[in-house]
Computed example of a mutant assay.
Amino acid sequence: MIYTSNDILPINKRNQRSIFLAGSMDHKQEGSWREDIITEFGTYSIFDPTNTKHDHLNTKEMKRHIEWELDALQLSDMILLNFLPNALSPISLVELGLYVNSKKLIVICPKEFYKSSYVHTLCEKYSTPIFNNIKEAKTLLKNSL
């Protein structure tokens, strides 16, 4: 089941594992990394914060969206955090700081990302798994669920 910020977060009565898709937004590209993960891990509950109207939300709607993201991050069993090479990703950097020491975070950060040195150092300090590409991260994600 896929949940977006338009959905009420579930109470996990079926003990189903869940994944939060954090990271750079790529809705302007074909072949979204999020769609790839949803296709491959669709048997799990997936929290996808993608909101194509994000830049046009009013204050009340934005607050609701942010609170949904924070609640979904906390509720999730695993967080897949993907930094795309040409993105700034300020919210993703905040999410990294919030969950780097949680033991439920898997990070993808290519060397081309403008803050890759910082991200890699932070992950190494807290023994958070970090990969240069999504293919490597998927293997760990499968084994972690």
Rank of each mutant, 00 (worst) to 15 (best):
T59C: 07
S116I: 04
A137Y: 07
E69K: 01
H27C: 11
N143R: 13
Q16D: 07
V119T: 09
T139S: 13
F41C: 09
T39N: 13
S5Y: 02
F113L: 07
Q29P: 00
E61N: 10
E95W: 01
G97K: 08
Q16P: 00
L84F: 03
L145A: 05
S116W: 06
N82L: 10
A22D: 04
S117W: 00
E30I: 14
S89L: 01
F47Q: 02
Y118R: 08
P110N: 10
H56W: 09
Y114D: 08
A72T: 00
F113M: 02
V107K: 01
V119Q: 06
F41K: 05
K63M: 14
G31N: 15
C109N: 06
S117P: 00
E112N: 08
L140Y: 08
W33F: 08
L70K: 12
S45M: 15
H56R: 14
K13S: 12
W68Y: 11
Y99T: 07
I38L: 05
R64Y: 11
S127Q: 15
V107A: 02
I108G: 00
K125W: 11
Q74L: 13
R64G: 03
S92H: 03
I130K: 04
A137W: 02
I91G: 05
W68K: 04
K63P: 00
S24Y: 08
R64P: 00
K28Y: 12
L122V: 15
S76M: 06
S102H: 08
R64H: 15
S32I: 03
T59V: 12
L73W: 03
N86T: 11
Y3T: 04
G31H: 11
K104D: 07
N82T: 09
P110C: 07
D26S: 10
I46K: 02
Y3R: 05
M78T: 13
T39R: 13
L145F: 14
E124K: 14
S76N: 06
E95Q: 12
F47T: 05
L105H: 01
L122H: 06
L122K: 11
K142C: 09
W68A: 04
K111I: 14
S117Y: 03
K115M: 15
F83R: 04
G23N: 07
R64K: 15
S117G: 09
Y3I: 05
K135Y: 12
S18P: 06
N86G: 12
D48W: 06
P129S: 10
M78V: 13
Q74T: 14
W68H: 05
E67A: 11
R34L: 03
S116M: 07
S117N: 09
P85C: 11
D7C: 10
Y126A: 06
I37P: 01
D71G: 01
G23W: 04
I19C: 04
T52E: 08
R17K: 15
N6I: 01
N86F: 14
H54D: 01
K111A: 08
P129I: 02
K111T: 13
Y114P: 01
E61V: 06
P90Y: 06
K142N: 12
